[in-house]
C-alpha cells in the first residue's frame, strides 16, 4: 500500500545514483540585492567635488629703468578699505588730507558686504545697464557667446567707468578680498586693483574708525 519511492524498485542500483536535474534558473535575488546596495552606496557617497577658481592677473612689476607710469586718474574711483569683523570703509575720489578747492577733507564711510554691492552698482549705473542690455541680447540669442564676451570686455574697459581700489589692512581676511573681487564682477567694474598696504594717512583714519567697532 505504501508508495514506492521512485527508483526504489527494479533491479540494480543505477537509478539511485542519478543526480537530480537542477533547474536552469538561479535565484538572482540576493545578487541583485547586493548590486543595488553597492550602487546605492556609490551614488550616495559620491559628491561632485569641483572647486572653481578666480583668474587673477597682477600687473608685472616695473623694471628699475622703466619710466614711472602716469598717475592713475582717481576722480572716478572708490577706495575700499577692508578691515576686521568683515567691515568695509570707503571714500570716493582722491584722498584729501585737508580741504582743497576740490572738496572737503576725506572722511571714511562704513559699509559691509551686504550693502557694498548696492553702493557699487549705484555708482556704476551706466555700465551695469549696458552690461544688462548685452546680457539680454545674449539670452535672446541675438548674439553669439564670443560677441557677448567681446562686448562685455569693451563695456568694462571704458575709461570713464568707476574704478575701485581694494586695500586690506592687517586685520582683513583672505575671504574678504575674494568676496570683494567677486563684487567687482557683479557690479561690472573692469579696472580694480588689490593693494595690501594702506597709506599712513589712510591707516590713521581707519584706526579711528576701528576703535569704534
Amino acid at each position: 500500500m505504501a508508495q514506492v519511492p521512485e527508483g526504489g524498485g527494479g533491479g540494480g542500483g543505477k537509478g539511485k545514483k542519478r543526480a537530480k536535474k537542477g533547474s536552469t534558473h538561479i535565484d538572482m535575488t540576493p545578487m541583485v540585492d547586493l548590486a543595488f546596495l553597492l550602487l546605492t552606496f556609490f551614488i550616495l557617497t559620491t559628491t561632485m567635488y569641483k572647486p572653481s577658481s578666480l583668474q587673477m592677473t597682477y600687473p608685472v612689476p616695473p623694471k628699475p629703468d622703466d619710466p614711472p607710469p602716469p598717475p592713475t586718474q582717481l576722480s572716478n574711483a572708490v577706495t575700499l578699505l577692508l578691515t576686521k569683523n568683515d567691515q568695509i570703509f570707503y571714500y570716493k575720489g582722491e584722498f584729501r588730507k585737508e580741504a582743497t578747492e576740490k572738496g572737503p577733507p576725506t572722511t571714511l564711510t562704513q559699509t559691509n558686504f551686504k550693502d557694498v554691492q548696492k553702493l557699487l552698482v549705484e555708482n556704476n549705473k551706466q555700465t551695469v545697464a549696458k552690461l544688462n542690455e548685452v546680457a539680454k541680447e545674449f539670452n535672446e540669442k541675438k548674439i553669439t557667446e564670443d560677441e557677448y564676451n567681446e562686448k562685455r570686455k569693451a563695456i568694462k574697459g571704458d575709461k570713464d567707468n568707476l574704478k575701485a581700489i581694494i586695500k586690506t589692512d592687517a586685520d582683513a581676511k583672505y575671504r574678504n578680498m575674494i568676496d570683494m573681487v567677486d563684487e567687482m564682477d557683479i557690479s561690472g567694474i573692469g579696472s580694480y586693483g588689490v593693494v595690501d598696504k594702506l597709506k599712513p594717512e589712510e591707516q590713521a583714519l581707519l584706526d579711528v574708525e576701528k576703535a569704534k567697532l
Binding site: P61, D171, Y174
Partner: peptide, 22 residues
C-alpha cells in the same frame, strides 16, 4: 599656478605669497 588659501587667513599672509609670485 594656483593659490589655495583658507578664507579666514589674514590677507597679509596671502599677500606675502603673491609678492613672491611677482
Amino acid at each position: 599656478v594656483a593659490l589655495k588659501a583658507d578664507g579666514n587667513t589674514n590677507y597679509s599672509s596671502v599677500a606675502d605669497v603673491i609678492r613672491t609670485f611677482q
